[in-house]
Write a protein that binds this DNA or RNA. Structure first.
Lengths: 207, 207
DNA sequence: GCCAAGGTGGCACTTAGTGCCAGACTGGCA
DNA sequence: TGCCAGTCTGGCACTAAGTGCCACCTTGGC
C-alpha cells in the first residue's frame, strides 16, 4: 500500500477480484506458480493477506477460478441441444460452444502452467468433479431411463471430461498449432471407435 | 514415546512403514482423515514428526501409498496379455488381474474415505496421472502406429482410469453389494457401446 | 448526524512440510 | 577389540497455506 491508491477498497468486489487475478497471473507467468507466494501477490495487489483469502479459498483458485462456472455453462448448452442427439453428440456440441469466444492466447498460457504444476492439475481435476452434478442429470435423461443409467451417465460424462483434459494437454504441449477442438475430436474418436482395430490388413478384432 | 518401546528404530524400514500405516489408518477410520493430525499419528506410532515425513511425503500418501505402485503392476499384466487383444480388452484384463487378491473389506473402507475427502480424492487422481507413463507406451504399441496414436493411447488409458474411478465410487457408495468388476464392466460398456442407443423402440441414433 | 452492515487490515494461531544438525545405531575392517 | 563410515533418528527452527477473531473504517439508510 505504498502507492497512491484512492481506494482499492471502495471499488466493487468484482473489480477487486479481477485486479487480484491480473496481478497474480502476471506473477505466476513471470516467476512460476509454485515459486510465487501469496505474500508477494498481496503486496503487489495492495491488499492484506487476510483479504486475499476472502476472495480466493486457495492459491490455485486464482488460476482456476474462471473454470469453476464452466460446468454450469456446459449444462446450459447441453440442455439446448435437440432431443434427437444422443449424449455423446450433445455433450460434444455443448463443449464446442464453450470453446467459442475463448481467449486462446491466455488459455494457452494458463494451460501450460496447469499441466506443468501438479497441485494445479490436481485442483483442476477436482473442479471437474463438480461438473458431474451439472451434467449427469441431462445425460441420464438422454439415456432414456435404462438400467444402471446413473452409472452409465457418470461414465460418459467422466470420459468426455477426460478427453477434454487430454486434448487440452496435447494442445498446450503443441503450443496450439491446431485448434483445441481438433485434439478433442481426435481423443473422442479414439474412444468411440468401433471394436475392430481399423489399421493394418486383417487386424485382430478387439474383443 | 512414553511407553516401553524396546526400539521401533531398530526394526526394518518396511516394518516401520507398515506400523505407521496401520496406526494412522485406525485413527483415520475412527476420527476421519481431515480431523486426524500428523502429530496425533506420530504420538500414537511412537516416532518423531520428522521421521514421519521420511516415510511419507504427505498425509495423503499414508492412505494412497499402496496404490502408487499399481500403475507398474497393471503395466506388467498388460504386457503379458496376448498380442491378439486390442487395447481395450487387454487393459480390462490387466485391471481385473489387479483386482484379484484384494482385501475388499479394507479397500471398501479406504474407498469410502477417499470419495468423501476432497484432498484425498485429488491426490488419488494425481497418482493416477502417473499411470499414463506406465500404460501409454504399451497401448500405443497395440494401436499399431496409427497417426496420432500418442493422443489416442492417452485418451484410451485416461478413459479406462476414469471408468475405474467411477466404478470404485459406485461400488463404495453401494457398500460393495456387487463385486467391483461388475461396476467397472458396466461403466466400460456405457463408453464402448455402439453409437445407436439400443434401448426403446426406434431410438434415435447418436450421430 | 446517528446507526447498522459489510468490507478491511492486523494479529495470533493451527497445520503441513522442509532444512539442518547432532546423536545413536549398524556393519565392515584392521 | 576398537575404529570408522553410512544410515536412521529426534529435535529445532523455519516457511507457507489457511482460519478465527477483533477492531476499524467506509458506506448507505433513516
Amino acid at each position: 500500500m505504498g502507492d497512491a491508491q484512492p481506494g482499492l477498497w471502495t471499488r466493487s468486489r468484482q473489480r477487486v477480484y479481477a485486479e487480484i487475478t491480473a496481478v497474480a497471473m502476471e506473477l505466476f507467468l513471470t516467476n512460476g506458480f509454485e515459486q510465487t507466494t501469496i505474500d508477494e501477490i498481496v503486496v503487489a495487489a495492495g491488499i492484506s493477506r487476510r483479504s486475499f483469502f476472502r476472495y480466493f479459498g486457495t492459491k490455485e483458485d486464482v488460476v482456476l477460478g474462471h473454470f469453476i462456472a464452466d460446468g454450469a455453462v456446459i449444462r446450459d448448452q447441453l440442455e439446448q441441444r435437440p432431443d434427437g442427439e444422443g449424449p455423446w453428440t450433445a455433450l460434444r456440441g455443448a463443449i464446442f460452444a464453450l470453446d467459442e469466444g475463448a481467449d486462446d492466447e491466455r488459455l494457452l498460457a494458463v494451460s501450460r502452467m496447469m499441466y506443468q504444476t501438479p497441485s494445479l492439475r490436481a485442483r483442476s481435476i477436482e473442479k471437474h468433479l463438480h461438473w458431474y452434478d451439472d451434467l449427469v442429470p441431462e445425460v441420464q435423461r438422454r439415456l432414456g431411463g435404462q438400467a444402471d443409467s446413473a452409472l452409465q451417465a457418470r461414465a460418459i460424462v467422466g470420459c468426455i471430461i477426460t478427453c477434454l483434459d487430454i486434448a487440452g494437454e496435447a494442445w498446450s504441449v503443441d503450443d496450439g498449432v491446431e485448434p483445441l477442438r481438433n485434439y478433442f475430436d481426435a481423443a473422442l474418436d479414439a474412444i468411440r471407435r468401433p471394436l475392430e482395430t481399423p489399421a493394418g490388413p486383417s487386424a485382430a478384432p478387439d474383443a
